[in-house]
Design a protein around this nucleic acid. Structure first.
Length: 791
DNA sequence: AGGGTTTTTT
């Protein structure tokens, strides 16, 4: 069967020849991702002697897609992976022979900071642009500038520099953010639409919108399974809990294994039918219509046509003809959960055909909307909602909220039913809700996330005035200035002219968020860098595993074990976990016993290697290697590590409310952190140490830094707490500190000889709210008629 | 004793 995109080859190639930018719209199944690179290749692009000798690049938002697409195209062109190659974070197959290169968009962004002209490439194909991921959006913005640069340079010396072409591919027609954005492309690029090889999907809305979409999904799936012909069911819910719950309900109602007797009865009926048909077929003159070209696919197949009162009617097709029979047991449901934190093996089960005589039923989150395509789905049940991470840019408070998806998302979900044949989508909400409460499109990621990493990356590419950057959807001014402020605190950019500093340039070379990059850059002291690397690697990864309620006690025991001797930091606890995991031989069993996601632990391992190699390559004085049997840090090192952590989170300090209200001193004595309120730098709200923190069961510290701030159902909690000493703040957090007048008590001490120096106690105040901190001793010297604090 | 998380990536 020919892919729809192949019919458009002429149109596409002509458009790419005549325009620097082309937009191609085609839903999943149109074949654009695999075919467009091949069109270019076969037209001679990327050939060293051609007019477009540079590589053909295709970017993908996800690693798996980059790898599998490269394999697929290599197979179709019958070329080795040294020619059709891929590059993702930890895996490269490129060679000097490479002509087509699939990669994640993050990889190309990183390459851009080394070579702003993308000289290696002749075409950049940006795939899945409709998803509006952060990296994809930034890439489109940067590439639009590269285009202009390359065009100018090529006009000066065509022999040396060839112009660049860009192809933006999208599964939906939401492309106006790219095409009608004159800061991005002065002349609107042509849009080519490609039909998808997609079967029709009938949409069925609920009359009423139920409160409980899990219960409603259960009813709907039961109905589908009891009454409708065979075909897999895919259910979209919002989170793990809902999924596990519905799994349980459905497995109870439709046990996964059919009665053995029923299976045997079925086999007997089929064999008898086949024999009878064979006899009939042997009668001469009864030829079957052989020019029905599809019939060769239809043989030896069975179709469930109806069910009634527990009786199932099947049509059985074999080599000799068709036969209808009924059997009296409900086909079991093969119920599988699917969400991203599920171990890989469990995820792969959805790709295997369900056991014979059962119906596949996958209950999934958003993963099944974009990242994973499940074969054999004919029915989609869509609750219409999605869980989203929200981020309050002013306060830094994150939360998870369940809300309606967009019309575009609902369309994507429905489309999953039409991949292998005509399908049905059951929406568990009314059409009125769909019309009135659903946004047309989901909010692009850039409008929902902190972007200090993006801003630092731009600065390192020489883009100082980020406001003028051609974002497909510009982030809010406030988001940008917040990012610049944080980069200022971290010392990555100059606070006046907002230009990148040497430290910032070093940070930009590290593939982690700027806070973590800062920790790495300052962490090379007292033999601590390997610890800092392990900490940063662990913080960059979602490490904890979802736990069952029953395991609660054991979980807390393991947490205490991991905290080791120092119980004042959740982040240092992470360090211990990483060490213990490696020490135990990095096994899956260790992860299982210790409530860790083995996928995450493997990622941490690879990240430690990458960061270690990078640090050694970037800094002359760094002598570091990965030591799996890393010894725990000493007391002195622990103190230093906490200071490093403080520096990375200097804008995320919290102080106990009672201490602030008491002028920075004393405060109440508490046995544990339960109900003990902390004040936040950027919010009037109070926050609490999470009961899951290692610090919860101890006397709560006066001051702490936190990795994240989460708004739960009842209150706002810190995640990843480290107790700090307020004495560090005037040093590490200079820009947030000021000092009051010297105190009369304890009495100032003057230097013996000259009397132009004195040692005094002052009350420092910290942060935008000027919190009073416990008094510290400082040295002052006389400057003219005034006393000033010595540096 | 104690709360609750979707999804990606350099």
């Amino acid at each position: 069967m020919k892919l729809p995109v192949c019919g458009e080859e002429q149109v596409i190639m002509e458009a790419i020849r005549n325009n620097t930018v082309v937009v191609i719209c085609g839903e999943t199944g149109s074949g654009k991702t695999t075919q467009v690179p091949q069109f270019l290749y076969e037209a001679g692009w990327s050939h060293p002697d051609s007019d477009n000798p540079g590589l053909i690049a295709i970017t993908q938002p996800r690693r798996v897609a980059a790898v599998s697409m490269a394999k697929r195209v290599g197979y179709e062109l019958n070329l080795p992976e040294s020619v059709v190659s891929h590059q993702i974070r930890y895996d490269v197959t490129t060679s000097e022979k490479t002509r087509i290169k699939f990669m994640t968009d993050g990889v190309l962004l990183r390459e851009l900071s080394q070579d702003l002209l993308l000289t290696k490439y002749s075409v950049i194909i940006i795939d899945e642009a409709h998803e509006r991921n952060l990296n994809t959006d930034i890439l489109i913005g940067v590439v639009s500038r590269v285009l202009k640069l390359r065009a100018e340079l090529s006009r000066e010396d065509r022999a040396k520099i060839k112009p660049l072409r860009v192809v933006i591919m999208s599964a939906t027609l939401r492309v106006s953010d790219f095409t009608e954005n004159s800061t991005l492309f002065t002349k609107p690029p042509p849009v080519i639409s490609v039909n998808a090889r997609q079967y029709p999907v009938s949409i069925h809305f609920n009359k009423r919108t139920p409160e409980d979409h899990v219960a409603e999904a259960f009813k709907k799936v039961s109905k589908i399974h009891d009454r409708l012909p065979e075909g897999g069911i895919l259910i979209f819910l919002t989170g793990q809990n809902e999924i596990q719950h519905l799994c349980k309900l459905l497995r109870e109602k439709y046990p996964s294994l059919p009665p053995k007797a029923a299976l045997e009865e079925r086999k007997r009926i089929r064999q008898a039918a086949e024999l009878e048909l064979k006899r009939d077929a042997a009668i001469p003159g009864e030829e079957s219509d052989s020019d029905d070209s599809d019939s060769d696919l239809g043989f030896d197949e069975e179709e469930l046509v109806s069910t009634k009162d527990g009786k199932w009617e099947y049509i059985y097709k074999c080599e000799y003809g068709k036969f209808t029979y009924t059997i009296s047991y409900a086909a079991p449901l093969h119920v599988l959960p699917l969400y991203s934190s599920l171990p890989t093996e469990a995820q792969l089960r959805v790709f295997q055909p369900p056991p014979e005589g059962t119906r596949l039923c996958v209950i999934a989150t958003n993963v099944a909307e974009t990242s994973v395509t499940i074969p054999g789905i004919r029915y989609v049940v869509d609750c219409g909602k999605a869980k989203e991470r929200r981020y309050d840019i002013k306060t830094g408070v994150q939360s998870f909220e369940v809300d309606w998806t967009s019309k575009a998302s609902a369309g994507q979900r429905a489309g999953r039913a039409g991949r292998t044949g005509p399908g049905h989508c059951y929406r568990l909400y009314s059409s009125a809700v769909f019309d009135h409460d659903f946004e047309q499109f989901s909010t692009p990621e850039i409008s929902r996330m902190p972007i200090e990493g993006v801003v630092l990356n731009m600065k390192s590419m020489g883009i100082d005035n980020v406001v003028n950057f051609p974002f497909p959807t510009p982030p809010e001014r406030q988001t940008l200035s917040k990012a610049e402020k944080l980069l200022g605190y971290l010392g990555a950019i100059d606070t006046d002219v907002k230009h990148i500093t040497p430290v910032g340039q070093a940070m930009a070379n590290l593939p982690v968020t700027p806070r973590f990059a800062k920790m790495l850059v300052i962490g090379n002291q007292q033999d601590c860098l390997p610890f800092v690397i392990a900490i940063v690697a662990a913080l960059s990864t979602e490490i904890a595993k979802a736990r069952r309620r029953l395991m609660r006690k054991k979980y807390f025991e393991s947490q205490i074990k991991h905290a080791g001797l120092d119980r004042s930091s959740d982040i240092l606890k992470l360090l211990n976990v990483v060490g213990a995991y490696e020490y135990a031989g990095a096994t899956a069993e260790f992860c299982e016993e210790n409530f860790l996601r083995s996928k995450a632990m493997e990622e941490i391992r690879k990240l430690r290697w990458q960061l270690t190699n990078l640090m050694a390559a970037l800094f002359e004085n760094v002598d570091v290697w990965v030591d799996p049997k890393m010894l725990p840090p000493t007391k002195r090192q622990i103190k230093f590590l906490k200071q490093v952590i403080t520096a990375g989170f200097i804008d995320s300090v919290a102080i106990r409310k009672d201490v602030i209200e008491n002028g920075g001193q004393g405060g109440t004595r508490f046995k544990n952190a339960r109900g003990v309120a902390y004040k936040l730098m950027w919010s009037e709200e109070e926050a609490f140490i999470h009961p899951g923190s290692i610090l919860y069961s101890q006397e709560p510290p006066i001051a702490l830094v936190y990795n994240e701030l989460f708004k739960g159902a009842t209150k706002t909690c810190f995640k990843g707490v480290t107790a700090i000493d307020t004495k560090w703040l005037p040093e590490i957090g200079k820009e947030f500190c000021s000092f009051g007048r010297p105190l009369d008590h304890p009495i100032p001490k003057y230097s013996e000889q000259t009397k132009d120096k004195k040692t005094v106690y002052v009350v420092p105040s910290f942060g935008p709210k000027g919190w009073p901190l416990p008094p510290i001793q400082v040295e002052m010297h006389r400057k003219g008629t005034r006393w000033v604090i010595s540096a």
